[in-house]
Computed example of a mutant assay.
Amino acid sequence: MKCVIEGKNVKVFGRAVQALSRVGDELWLDPTVKGLALRSVSSAQSAYACFIFSPLFFQQYSLGGAPKQSSETVKCKLLLKSLLPLFRCLTSIERNVECCQISVSASSDWVVFQFFCRHGKKINYLC
């Protein structure tokens, strides 16, 4: 899966991640044909929250080489503690980030967040 988020939508995506951090400690990324679902469940499994971002939310959204009818989907579990610092400073992100690219590969065990900032700066983050 590969998706690109515009600078103004990075703030929206970051707020969704922050909201899910109040529900649980883990974030599930579930890319589907209908969009990217972000899910979180509390440790006692008494609370659940989900945000589904439509493919129209992204500048580019592709599931990769996997066929759409395939029963094998890529689902990723990330610790929110490691992800939250990326989206903490939302005001500075909104001013400096031009786009964010999120890549998930079925063959590797990495989720890659790449922030493309003004003046050619690039921030890579592996989860």
Results as ranks from 00 to 15, higher is better:
Lys2His: 04
Ala49Arg: 04
Thr32Ile: 01
Cys76Ala: 15
Val112Arg: 12
Val12Gly: 00
Ile5Glu: 01
Pro31Ala: 12
Asn9Ala: 11
Ala47Gln: 13
Ser71Asp: 14
Ser108Ala: 10
Val74Gln: 14
Thr91Phe: 04
Pro31Val: 02
Ser71Gln: 13
Gln69Arg: 08
Lys75Pro: 01
Leu80Arg: 03
Glu72Gly: 00
Phe13Glu: 04
Glu6Gln: 10
Gln114Asp: 01
Val41Cys: 02
Ser92Met: 09
Leu63Asn: 02
Ser105Gln: 10
Asn124Ile: 00
Asn124Arg: 14
Arg15Lys: 14
Phe51Pro: 00
Gly24Ile: 10
Gln18Gly: 03
Ser105Glu: 08
Arg22Thr: 10
Val17Lys: 09
Ala49Asp: 06
Arg95Asp: 11
Val112Tyr: 02
Thr32Tyr: 10
Leu83Pro: 01
Gly7Met: 10
Val74Glu: 10
Cys100Thr: 14
Ser71Pro: 06
Gly120Pro: 03
Gln59Cys: 12
Cys99Glu: 04
Thr91Lys: 14
Lys34Val: 12
Pro67Glu: 13
Leu56Ala: 11
Thr73Tyr: 10
Val23Asp: 03
Pro55Glu: 10
Ala16Phe: 05
Ser71Trp: 03
Lys77Pro: 00
Phe115His: 00
Ser103Met: 08
Val12Ile: 15
Glu94Ile: 04
Gly64Arg: 11
Arg22Met: 11
Arg88His: 12
Phe13Lys: 10
Ser40Gly: 05
Phe116Trp: 00
Ser107Val: 10
Asp30Val: 06
Thr32Ala: 15
Tyr125Met: 01
Cys100Glu: 02
Ser62Trp: 02
Asp30Leu: 09
Lys8Arg: 10
Asp30Phe: 01
Asn96Arg: 07
Cys50Glu: 15
Phe13Ser: 05
Lys122Leu: 07
Gln101Cys: 12
Pro85Asn: 08
His119Leu: 13
Glu6Lys: 12
Glu72Ala: 02
Ala47Pro: 01
Leu86Asp: 05
Cys50Lys: 15
Ala106Thr: 08
Phe116Met: 02
Gln114His: 02
Ser70Lys: 11
Ala19Glu: 13
Leu20Asn: 08
Ala47Lys: 13
Phe58Pro: 02
Ser21Tyr: 01
Gly35His: 09
Cys3Thr: 06
Arg118His: 04
Ile52Thr: 15
Cys100Tyr: 00
Lys122Trp: 00
Val104Glu: 05
Arg118Ala: 09
Lys34Ser: 14
Gln60Leu: 06
Lys2Phe: 00
Tyr61His: 04
Gln114Ser: 04
Val41Glu: 03
Lys11Val: 15
Ser46Arg: 07
Leu83Trp: 03
Ser54His: 15
Ser43Phe: 01
Tyr61Lys: 11
Thr32Gln: 15
Gln114Val: 11
Gly64His: 06
Met1Asp: 02
Val41Thr: 13
Lys75Cys: 02
Ser92Ala: 11
Leu78Pro: 01
Tyr125Asp: 04
Ser107Phe: 13
Leu56Phe: 06
Arg15Ser: 09
